[in-house]
Design a binder for these strands. Sequence first.
DNA 1: GATGAATGAGTATTCATTCAT
DNA 2: TATGAATGAATACTCATTCAT
Lengths: 199, 199, 199, 199
Amino acid sequence: MNNKVREPKQIRSVEKKNKIIEAGYELFSEVGYYGTNTAEIAKRAGVSTGIVYGYFKDKKDILICTLNIYINNIFAPVEKFLSDLSSPIDFTALAPKVIDLTIKVHAKNSKMHEALHSLASSDKDVSAEFIAFEDNLTLKIAEKLQSLGVNSHNLQEKIHFCLNIVQSFAHESVYDKHSYIDYLAMRKMVEQTIINLFL
Amino acid sequence: MNNKVREPKQIRSVEKKNKIIEAGYELFSEVGYYGTNTAEIAKRAGVSTGIVYGYFKDKKDILICTLNIYINNIFAPVEKFLSDLSSPIDFTALAPKVIDLTIKVHAKNSKMHEALHSLASSDKDVSAEFIAFEDNLTLKIAEKLQSLGVNSHNLQEKIHFCLNIVQSFAHESVYDKHSYIDYLAMRKMVEQTIINLFL
Amino acid sequence: MNNKVREPKQIRSVEKKNKIIEAGYELFSEVGYYGTNTAEIAKRAGVSTGIVYGYFKDKKDILICTLNIYINNIFAPVEKFLSDLSSPIDFTALAPKVIDLTIKVHAKNSKMHEALHSLASSDKDVSAEFIAFEDNLTLKIAEKLQSLGVNSHNLQEKIHFCLNIVQSFAHESVYDKHSYIDYLAMRKMVEQTIINLFL
Amino acid sequence: MNNKVREPKQIRSVEKKNKIIEAGYELFSEVGYYGTNTAEIAKRAGVSTGIVYGYFKDKKDILICTLNIYINNIFAPVEKFLSDLSSPIDFTALAPKVIDLTIKVHAKNSKMHEALHSLASSDKDVSAEFIAFEDNLTLKIAEKLQSLGVNSHNLQEKIHFCLNIVQSFAHESVYDKHSYIDYLAMRKMVEQTIINLFL
DNA sequence: GATGAATGAGTATTCATTCAT
DNA sequence: TATGAATGAATACTCATTCAT
């Protein structure tokens, strides 16, 4: 067929495409997908509205690309964290660090997290990308732990479960949504749960 | 001031209002808030577009009302469950039942759950209603448990944490999103985590 | 044909019709014809929306009826004024009184004056009714003056011209629209112009 | 902040904006502000509905721009007229010319005059623009007359008063609204009134 | 490649009028 | 007569996408 979307090869073009993605990332984070319009993205990226469709198939395509930024924003610190791990692993010492990292990462990306999750529920493409990311993350961590001698049964399930509860805690903790909750006490529960899993 | 929205007192009116809410519930579940238009809601409810604004202030008002249905759909079975509890509580026996119930409830309301959460992230009204619901749920459960002699430290935090992990599990479980995960094994982890909390 | 609009014969009905006209008068005065809706008129009149169409053909029909109120509001004091006149007429003494009366009447009905004129420009029915009123007013005054021995040439033209300038002055004066104008000085001009006409 | 409305710099754009204003002018004149819809304006201007909002903030913004056309339509001939005046001024000769000019100008713009006045009564923006225009006109004339040696007391009030009666006469004269009036006789009164003022 | 003007389908909301009760 | 719920056509405005330059 007629592939209208350019794969930019020139450096200038790549830069321009990235500018658009960044602008999209910012706006989607600030006002959500439906609160953002393409003209605004173009304006913030410093390009014309027309050229956006030179680099992206449609508005959703921009979102998919911002999703990749989001994923990298999370992946990068996690990979760094993993590469610093060494055998033998002391989960009692590790758990607080994992929580700290997750909160830190989440605080920086929480808005986008919401914007993306919001779309994932109604859009198969976004949802698929999201699931693939989580799978990938779980697997990466599992591999690393195994290479460091962790031979826990149901390792992937444990990691996945940990990710769930840590993220869930980080999300609430960042927003401090429920005023009557003692988040420090809750944090201890999260830590202990992780430790118990890997005993 | 000018209260344009009718508070239906006639039976016929109540039925009509409910029809609209149901139609909204269905459509928001199917295609999300932004994928639904008011004409479509009216059509599915079998009413004119105009009368929708006789019962609801605006489109978001319909959503808020569907949110209440959703909340009741969850509250009702939980209250039933709580009322069947008797002292002394055996958490080892209780945990699986809680998970069963949550999965069952979630399976029936998961689509709406996503649609609502999706909006909660960008809309303060929806978000507030949601948080209030979660607070309410946590408190109700805490009261009941205390009345049955559970005197655990940080009871509210424990309950809230449990709700988080059970819901998170139920959500994944219903969709079976991650193909490589053994959800039965993961379920055991959830159960054990609950039991450990209340030991 | 089928004359749907009832001519109320019952006293209760007449009262109800008048209530609607009054409500219309108030609302048209306050927010203009297009800023008023029939439901609001009915509400203020204390009747149902449906019955409005029992007494009036349509929304414009209400306006035409309010126009009659407006006309009476002006006619009545003018007639009173005329009936107090006695021969011989001293225009030097009369002119200030005419201006006072016009301002007084205008102050009470200026909003409706604007609402009606606003519609007269685009609606033939309203316009016709308005012109008939002005003709009638001019003729009434002319008759009275003639009966009091005023035999001025072009009497009707003079009266009409006087009405124009007095009304124009009253309108501006009531609103004090132009800040740099000395309305007292202008008033003297209006008075002198009238006096000159009838010398 | 977010300046969405384009300030057209291209010749093509300027032409298009003018087309829209003209279309608005025509339609507002023909059927009034409320009888005109934006789609109709776009259609008559030969453009899409969307681009109308590229050039104008909203429907009222179009009206304000047509108001400016209207004002220029009046200002231009008046300025021409003023620039042809030379000292000393003979008001007896001037009065008929002023009336002729006003009638001529009014005949060309009377419909718009009505449409605008109609809105001025309910809209502050339009009203303000109108008053400013009248003030401006009065002042311009006053300056010119003073520069030509007219040192009349209350000059502004006199001019303003003259404008009122001439416009009022022109309006009626153009429409010949009142069948029983001898407009030639009335015209003489207007002339004489002006002459008397500046004696 | 790049621009930004132009398109036009789409949408929430209003309101004069009707009609079942 | 009277009610007020119901109708549905009408309308201002938005925005993803296209296209002439």
